[in-house]
């Protein structure tokens, strides 16, 4: 057994505290906007200047003037505000993001991570990732524990060009929730039925309880 992407999103969302400003990146993290948070109120920020958006719009009801970071048409919640890009990134660089949740190719024991350039490529896709990674109070990552060919994505050091140095707070994978320790990763939670040995076999550095 392992977590689905939605379960990974739900597990990370459990870490959010009431009142947080939360930035969600492209890809898997967008699922978090659909997770019920009970009596905790968080405000979702999107790098394109949307503050206070809600779930993705049902088909047929899209406002084509309104997208989240992933280009999905989203809804606005009461109290939402919109600013231009320089102000949006001023909020990011200015330290207003309690957490940013991003997808990644690799996460390293030293807190580095890589999510903008794949092996052998000349180009890359940075978007707002480097700004967010450098300046958010916390960086949460969501990624599959292994690549499609079974190689570990949790490594002693990144092999791909990094997005930022030493910033990762938590990593959610299909196998569990982990925190980098410098030497390896500490288990914060395991998906149902997943054993510590299974995680160790799938990880390229020490995994501690």
């Amino acid at each position: 057994m392992s977590w689905t992407r939605m379960q990974m999103a739900e597990r990370l969302a459990r870490e959010f505290e009431d009142g947080w400003i939360v930035n969600l990146g492209v890809g898997m993290p967008t699922l978090i906007a659909d997770v019920p948070l009970g009596d905790r109120e968080v405000v979702f920020h999107s790098e394109n200047g949307v503050i206070g958006y809600g779930p993705v719009t049902p088909p047929g009801q899209e406002d084509l003037h309104l997208v989240n970071a992933g280009g999905q048409n989203v809804t606005l919640l009461p109290g939402a505000a919109i600013v231009h890009h320089a102000d949006s990134f001023a909020l990011i660089r200015g330290g207003r993001m309690d957490v940013t949740v991003m997808g990644a190719y690799e996460a390293a024991a030293n807190g580095d991570f890589a999510n903008w350039k794949v092996k052998g490529a000349k180009g890359g896709g940075i978007g707002g990732a480097m700004d967010l990674a450098a300046s958010a109070k916390r960086v949460f990552l969501m990624l599959e524990h292994r690549t499609r060919d079974g190689s570990p994505r949790l490594l002693p050091r990144c092999t791909l060009p990094i997005t930022a140095r030493g910033v990762v707070t938590l990593v959610a994978t299909d196998l569990g929730l982990f925190a980098p320790t410098g030497e390896g990763f500490a288990v914060r939670d395991l998906a149902p039925g997943v054993t510590l040995d299974e995680v160790r076999a799938a990880t390229a550095c020490p995994v501690t309880e």
């Binding site: 660089r93 180009g123 940075i126 707002g128 990732a129």
Partner: peptide
Amino acid sequence: AEIVPQGTLAERLR
């Protein structure tokens, strides 16, 4: 091509 982080791109224009 010059690849620029998005917030840096916005701030360089600003």
